[in-house]
């Protein structure tokens, strides 16, 4: 029996205090096995991004346990924590605000390597950066350019190359295609699938809708109000959803099929009395 790469137990994160106290993450537990892609799906305010950031310890959890690659993520500090952090990297949602506009692509990708392996020769770093660029489908002549010269999709590829620079085992992706054009979204989703294959990567993929994760993730957790409502395999979630909330999310996903969409619209309209203003 293989051990999970990531084990989360009883994770809690609170914000504020007194009467304004909010439990953004409320007793969340899940495992991620090596080589799998877990989808974390929920609407805004469901706690999915806070969960991901707690797992990477970008924000400190209030309570709970996070084990990454067999080590207690929350007990470590200093150099030991830094070493463990290279095991798990984050791909951000917004490819515009997450790249420093003053740095060249080469520097953006190499930054992590320089921090974690300060004695590495610059030619080795350069070779690795070129390799990373090719891995994500960019060209070596892109290296000296700055983020402004790239489209959203290309920027997201740069962000992915940066995340891969430290050879992580786990990639946490926070809605990485949400702000991209439709025709580019599919390219990036394919890239993730390809990278998982080639690099034996494990993925935690955060999304607000159920359609993108379906292609990438073998297992899906549906979050609402800080808790996991339902977790299961792709087949279980899409073919036999147990929780009412999962079913509601599923019903609301618009599909490019006018006949079924019109049927859904009619069903919604007959479920809700029209015209009446609410009290």
């Amino acid at each position: 029996m293989t051990t999970p790469l990531l084990q989360v137990r009883g994770l809690v994160r609170e914000f504020g205090h007194g009467p304004g106290l909010v439990r953004a993450v409320d007793d969340v537990s899940f495992d991620v096995m090596p080589g799998e892609a877990l989808g974390l799906v929920g609407e805004s305010g469901s706690g999915k991004s806070t969960t991901a950031r707690c797992v990477l310890r970008l924000i400190e959890p209030t309570a709970g346990e996070v084990r990454l690659d067999g080590q207690d993520m929350l007990a470590l500090k200093g150099p030991a924590l830094r070493r463990l952090r290279s095991t798990a990297q984050l791909v951000f949602q917004d490819p515009y605000s997450s790249l420093n506009p003053r740095m060249t692509v080469a520097d953006i990708i190499a930054e992590g390597i320089r921090i974690h392996r300060p004695r590495e020769s610059s030619s080795t770093v350069q070779d690795e950066v070129v390799e990373l660029l090719e891995l994500v489908g960019l060209r070596p002549d892109h290296l000296t350019r700055k983020p402004a010269a790239f489209s959203g999709g290309e920027r997201q590829r740069i962000g992915i190359a940066r995340a891969l620079a430290l050879k992580p085992k786990l990639l946490v992706c926070d809605e990485p295609v949400a702000s991209l054009d439709v025709s580019i979204q599919a390219q990036i989703l394919n890239l993730f699938a390809e990278l998982m294959d080639r690099l034996d990567l494990t993925l935690v993929y955060i999304a607000h809708d159920l359609s993108t994760v379906r292609h990438l993730c073998g297992r899906i957790a549906v979050m609402q109000d800080g808790t996991i409502r339902e977790i299961g395999t792709r087949e279980q979630i899409y073919e036999d959803p147990q929780h009412e909330y999962t079913r509601a999310l599923m019903a609301a996903v618009p599909e490019p099929d006018p006949r079924s969409e019109r049927a859904k619209l009619t069903a919604r309209r007959s479920a809700q009395p029209t015209g009446a203003s609410r009290p």
Binding site: G153, A186, N190, T212, H215, Y238
Partner: peptide, 19 residues
Amino acid sequence: SLPRITGPVPERLVTIGGG
């Protein structure tokens, strides 16, 4: 290229190359 919530899950999404 649209990911769908029903039907078979393709190995790769068909894409329009470039941007």
